[in-house]
Nucleic acid binder design. Structure first.
Length: 661
DNA sequence: ATAGGGTTAG
């Protein structure tokens, strides 16, 4: 109540959400927040003001922060330091004001306040130094550091170093972190736990995880924060296995994990797609009682959804007391990436209808569903949302738009988005290369890769998949081989089965089946389903039952539940006219109760998506559609086109077949 | 001094 009273005197810029986070924050600190009785009756309170200012600073809320500043100016009489009782209070408010401006990135204001402060302490200097470093004005920041050092009244202390380190959170500030590391060492601060923890965090944020790990290993005393800093740092840098191993190691020690440790280790499980380990952590979370923490719930839902178990994710979703932008994004991504595209679209539309503030993360997540069976018109609406909300600078959103347009068949629009981008990352290039490849424009895909090299963007394993895909379209096996070679030798990326499968597919399409077989036998790793399927597919195109049989046998071992080897072998036998063999294999497949997945096609007309399966009569305009189809078939035959009978479908009778082919 | 989310290929 007291806080609300103080705030109402301040200004309407202090929103209710700020108030609620303030109150929540107060409970966490469990420090009593009471009005200074000596100032009762005066519309001002030093303690609340400084706490609100610090809160604004931490969250980067400049507007309410500067409103508080205005209020301070109004009550300037209270800042008379001739009243010695007041000195401490006055200093605390001034310091929070400097901190607020510096943490909001407003260094010129921070400096003005700092210069006019009647008294300063080390904390005042610390805010100025870290503020300038955070906005990467490194020279100025160090200027303050030197000035502080040379003035005889102040000396840096461990807090100065931790506050500098907390500003060093980007790789280009690594040199500063290293310098501070030296100062820590020279001054014998290395065993101060908060200092070492800040150093660890800074090294990880600067992508120098080895140094971070070394600092951690050399600490004689470690607390939860030390452990969590490394576990989360490793997970954020995508060293998921190391992160999870360390978490496991921590459990055999004496330091108890907290909710932050659990959410970090769950994030490692997500990255590893490790369902079993994820469930184990879930068990620990239940025992610890952190299970109704929203961060934990989001981490759990994400873990389950990335591991492909949406049922488990839904269970947590239903039990959750509240949702926020992160947990909603987790669900949205889960739906979009687990084959529930329609639900994802519905979820997104509901979010918009409920008035939820859509953020760039949600947009890039929903853009991923386009091109499956969604409406292109909706995709365009989302693009207009992007423009309205000024998300056009976000690389994730732009990359999503490139993919959305290219998957919906609009390559021109993809190119426009790509060309307009000011900061392209490797995913942008990969997406555009893939877009050209997808549209059969292999040469342009390769040209774009040349440009990518000129602009010194490092390719990734996905780049090479798209490039191989492009080579496959041009029919240039040699070029593909070259890429596979340079991938390992020049860029140090070891090819995965997917890359090898692409090459097998390429050799196979070119009819070089013997070579493809030899290539597979020389592979450094287990070929797996994709590779054998590529070889078998090629044999089915070229009608080679000898190598086909070889591939089918391996495929059966790798994927005993798949109908593909049976269907493709049946096709090969058909093309060779070996009807008995064909009948035998179909019988065997039916005996195994395997069924080929039905192919489907979609078309969008006037905002409505129509789907079709071979031979179906479900569509309300079926009658007309088949009439047009027959007319087209007649025209084709008149034009000299004959059905390719080598692709006779296994479960259709002869009369039916010609129509379908 | 420590936490949960987003885009690419197949």
């Amino acid at each position: 109540m007291k806080v609300r009273w103080v705030m109402s005197k301040f200004n309407s810029h202090l929103t209710s959400s700020l108030l609620s986070s303030f109150l929540k924050n107060r409970n966490q600190n469990s420090r009593n927040l009471s009005l200074d009785t000596r100032n009762a009756g005066i519309v001002f309170n030093y303690v609340d003001t400084s706490r609100l200012l610090s809160l604004c600073g931490r969250r980067g809320h400049l507007r309410p922060g500067s409103s508080l500043h205005a209020c301070i100016i109004k009550h300037s009489s209270l800042f008379d330091i001739r009243n010695l009782d007041n000195i401490r209070n006055v200093l605390v408010v001034w310091n929070s004001l400097v901190f607020m401006y510096s943490n909001c990135g407003q260094l010129s204001y921070a400096a003005k306040v700092f210069d006019r402060m009647p008294i300063k302490d080390t904390i005042s200097w610390n805010s100025m130094i870290s503020g300038y470093l955070r906005v990467e004005e490194i020279e100025t920041g160090f200027g303050f550091f030197k000035r502080m050092h040379s003035s005889s009244d102040f000396r840096f202390d461990p807090a100065t170093l931790t506050s500098i380190l907390s500003a060093c959170d980007k790789p280009n500030l690594l040199s500063v972190s290293k310098l501070i590391h030296c100062l820590i060492f020279v001054n014998g601060y290395e065993q101060e736990i908060p200092v070492a923890n800040a150093l660890i965090t800074s090294y990880f944020k600067c992508e120098c995880h080895n140094s971070g790990r070394r600092v951690f290993d050399e600490m004689s005393q470690k607390n939860v924060i030390s452990w969590t800093a490394v576990i989360s740092g490793l997970a954020q840098r995508q060293f998921y296995d190391q992160s999870f191993n360390l978490f496991w190691k921590m459990r055999s020690g004496s330091v108890e994990p907290n909710s932050l440790t659990y959410s970090s280790s769950l994030s490692a499980c997500s990255g590893l797609r490790a369902l079993k380990e994820g469930r184990q952590v879930h068990g620990l979370v239940l025992k610890s009682g952190f299970d109704s923490d929203l961060c934990i719930e989001s981490a759990l839902m994400d873990m389950y959804s990335k591991c492909g178990s949406m049922e488990d994710a839904f269970r947590i979703f239903k039990a959750a007391a509240e949702m926020d932008e992160v947990s909603m994004t987790v669900i949205l991504v889960g739906l979009a990436q687990n084959g529930l595209e329609e639900e994802a679209v519905r979820f997104f539309i509901n979010m918009v209808k409920m008035g939820i503030d859509i953020d760039p993360n949600m947009v890039s997540a929903i853009l991923g569903v386009f091109g499956i069976d969604t409406s292109f018109a909706l995709g365009q609406q989302i693009h207009s949302l992007v423009i309205k909300k000024s998300f056009g600078v976000n690389p994730f959103v732009n990359n999503g738009l490139i993919n959305m347009y290219s998957k919906c068949g609009n390559l021109e629009e993809s190119m426009k988005v790509f060309d307009r981008m000011t900061h392209r990352n490797s995913v942008s290039w990969n997406s555009m290369i893939a877009a050209f490849a997808r549209h059969g424009r292999g040469f342009e895909a390769l040209q774009l890769y040349e440009k990518m090299r000129i602009e010194s963007v490092e390719p990734t394993d996905v780049t090479f998949l798209s490039l191989l895909h492009a080579c496959s379209h041009i029919g240039s096996v040699d070029k593909g081989m070259e890429f596979l070679d340079s991938m390992a030798k020049v860029h140090g990326i070891s090819p995965r089965v997917e890359h090898y499968a692409c090459l097998v597919d390429m050799l196979g399409r070119a009819g070089r089946l013997v070579e493809a077989k030899r290539f597979i036998e020389g592979l450094p790793l287990e070929p797996g389903v994709l590779v054998w399927q590529a070889l078998l597919g090629a044999c089915s195109i070229h009608g080679d039952s000898t190598i086909g049989r070889f591939a089918a046998d391996h495929l059966l071992l790798a994927a005993p539940e798949s109908a593909t080897p049976y269907v493709l072998m049946a096709n090969i036998y058909s093309s060779e006219g070996r009807w008995e063999e064909r009948a035998r294999i179909i019988k065997k497949m039916k005996g195994m109760k395997l069924k080929k997945e039905t192919g489907m096609s979609w078309i969008e007309l006037e905002n409505k998506v129509h789907s079709f399966v071979v031979g179906d009569r479900i569509h309300p305009q079926s009658e007309t559609i088949y009439q047009v189809l027959e007319e087209l078939i007649r025209l084709m035959r008149d034009g000299g086109y004959v059905p390719d009978e080598s692709f006779l479908h296994y479960d259709l009778d002869q009369d039916f077949n010609e129509e379908h082919l």
